[in-house]
Every structure is written in structure tokens, then in C-alpha cells.
Design a protein around this nucleic acid. Structure first.
Lengths: 173, 173
DNA sequence: AAACGACATGTCAAGTCTGACATGTCAGCC
DNA sequence: GGCTGACATGTCAGACTTGACATGTCGTTT
């Protein structure tokens, strides 16, 4: 279960409310793990019961800011250091890309173009994030990961364009 | 749900038994989607009820070979063409890589080296697959995907080595 | 002939995740 | 004052996934 460790990790980076965590899952972790608030709030409660996070502040609208405790930090460290490199992933995009060859060239071209557009959008988001981070003073811990995302995105877009060319050859205009 | 479409796709590529499908999920789709036989057999039954696959042969040990029907092919096509480019993924490795900066440099180096080793193993597997495929007559539909995997692997390993260098700078010997 | 390992399928309890439903607060605008 | 949209939390049924348990077959080796 990574949800637990993702939450611990985000809180270890910076204390946050459940709402803020949900936003971070949609931004920072968008390309790594998806979780919505309906999972995050119960998980925070469980982590609090387990003594791994604690409430460090309350704000307007019943909001509670959580922070990691020493026990939580230890659990996180244990997972990062000892957890075996589990390569299992669940990636709908990858499945789709595997099966695109089954389509007729015309359909395939359309699908490839849609995938390319989605990647372009992701690229734009990453570039924005990079710029925002770079304009901040000091270095941001996630900067290398943004960079990795950009590089992987480049490779994937190149590949998609190659597949588009190939589909064009097969299918005429 | 991608399990259904992954199964349909594999069967559209080539008819197979549930057992063979499970093996393919561990090989071809290892970096895309994980599914074990305890999911595959029930899914085949559901797909058969829905008229999307049919039994085209029976072999030793009660084995049944399934193939996609026209209805299944249509559903698969619909998903490939119309399904929106869902970028949600669930990737424990990515989460870990996001949080590695939280570790002390010594721990971080150890973790990075373990990740590098896991990637090397994956690389070796992909190269083997590529060679096996290339030695076959004709072109194999998954060849481009193997290539994509190799390229993405290269980018990731380069990144890991950079992070290792950075951790070395931080933490001395 | 017994033992072994790969082949082959099946079930199920427990855990995880999704999407919808539900409730309420606060700030700014008209 | 009322409206709207962002903020903020919570619950839950239904679907999906995991890992363990269960059963049996076939070919090869000892």
C-alpha cells in the first residue's frame, strides 16, 4: 500500500490539511499515484490512530493541519530503505499503447494524435511547474522529479511521432 | 477498468488459455498492468457471458483456449479509439523516487543503488525479449513497445546516476 | 511406481479504490 | 442580504485487487 507512504511523505515535506494533500496528489503526484479526498481523509484518521501523524493546527472551516510524528518518519524511512523495488504498476495508458497496433491505420493515427495531445498538455503543466519552482529562492526537493518527467515525456512523444509516421506509411493519407 | 481490455487485447493478438494469459501479463504487460490468475479466470467467465470471448478449443488438463468474438473486437476498438487518455497511474516506484530526497545521503545512496539494480534487471529482460523477437521471422507487433521500454529505461537510469552523484556530493564517502 | 515440477483452473476473505452523495463555511460580488 | 465559488470534511455502496487456499493433470525423472 503506497497511499499511506505517499501521505506520510507529503506531510514530511510540509504539514498540510487533507484538502491540501488532495490538491498535491493531483499536481505533484499526478504521474505517480492517484488518490481522492475520499481516500485521504480516512487514511489520515488511520495514521493518527497509529500515532504516525498528529494535528498541529486548526483553521477556518474545521480544517486541521497534520504533521508527521517521529513514528511516522521512521515508518516512512523504513519503507523507503527496506521496501523492495516493487515494479508493479497500473498504467492504463501503457496498456492502450500496447494494443494500438490492433487498430486500422486511420483509427490508429487518430488515437496516436490524441495521446500526443494529452502528452503535450502534461508537458505544458510540467514546464509551468518547473518555471514556478525555479523562480523560487533556494532549491526545491521535487525539481529533479519534474526534470525526470520532462525527459520521459520527450522520449514518449518521440516514440508516438514515430508510430504516427509508421501508421501514415501503412494507411496512405 | 483496463483488465477487461488488456485481456481482450491479448486475445485479439492471439487466442490463449487463462494460464497463458497470466504468463503474458507477467511478461509483455509487466510494465503496464499487473493481474494474476485469480483475476483472469473470473474475467474470462464474465467476458464469455457478455459474448465478447468464446472457447475455441479444449486441451489437456481441462484447459480452454479463448478467442475474441466480433463483439469483443468492437468493444476493444471502442475503448482504444474513444476512451479518453486517462493518465492516472499507480506507480509505487514513482512515489518512492519522489520521496527519496527525505533520506539521509547514505540511506539515499543505498536506495538509489537498489533502484538502479532493479532497473538493470528490467533492462536485461527487455533486451532478451528484443533479441528473441528479432530472431523471429517477420515483425512482431510488440517490438515498438519493447523499444519504448528500453528508451524510457535509459532515461531513468541516467537520472538515477545523477541523483547518486548528487547524494555523493552531499554525504561524502 | 512414486515423486516432482510445470501446467491448469477455481474460490474467497480481506483490503483498496472510485464516484456519488452529503454537509457546511468563508470571502467577494451584485 | 443573497448568490456563487472555492474551501473543507465526511460517508458509503459497489467495484476491483491481492494473496492464500484448494484441486487436479500430465510428463519426466529416480
Amino acid at each position: 500500500m503506497s497511499l499511506r507512504h505517499a501521505v506520510l511523505g507529503l506531510l514530511a515535506t510540509q504539514p498540510a490539511t487533507g484538502y491540501e494533500l488532495a490538491a498535491k496528489f493531483d499536481r505533484s503526484l499526478a504521474n505517480a499515484w492517484h488518490a481522492s479526498h475520499s481516500q485521504i481523509y480516512p487514511e489520515l484518521a488511520k495514521l493518527q490512530d497509529a500515532g504516525m501523524v498528529e494535528v498541529v493546527g486548526e483553521g477556518a472551516r474545521r480544517s486541521r493541519t497534520y504533521a508527521v510524528t517521529d513514528a511516522g518518519r521512521e515508518e516512512l524511512r523504513r519503507w523507503l530503505v527496506e521496501g523492495d523495488a516493487n515494479r508493479h504498476q497500473r498504467n492504463e495508458t501503457a496498456v492502450r499503447w500496447f494494443l494500438l497496433f490492433l487498430l486500422e491505420p486511420a483509427d490508429r493515427r487518430r488515437a496516436l494524435e490524441r495521446e500526443l495531445a494529452a502528452l503535450d498538455a502534461n508537458e505544458a503543466m510540467l514546464r509551468e511547474t518547473a518555471e514556478r519552482i525555479d523562480s523560487l529562492p533556494g532549491s526545491h526537493p521535487f525539481r529533479p522529479n519534474v526534470d525526470l518527467g520532462l525527459r520521459v515525456g520527450d522520449v514518449m512523444r518521440t516514440w508516438l511521432r514515430e508510430q504516427l509516421d509508421a501508421a501514415g506509411d501503412d494507411g496512405g493519407t
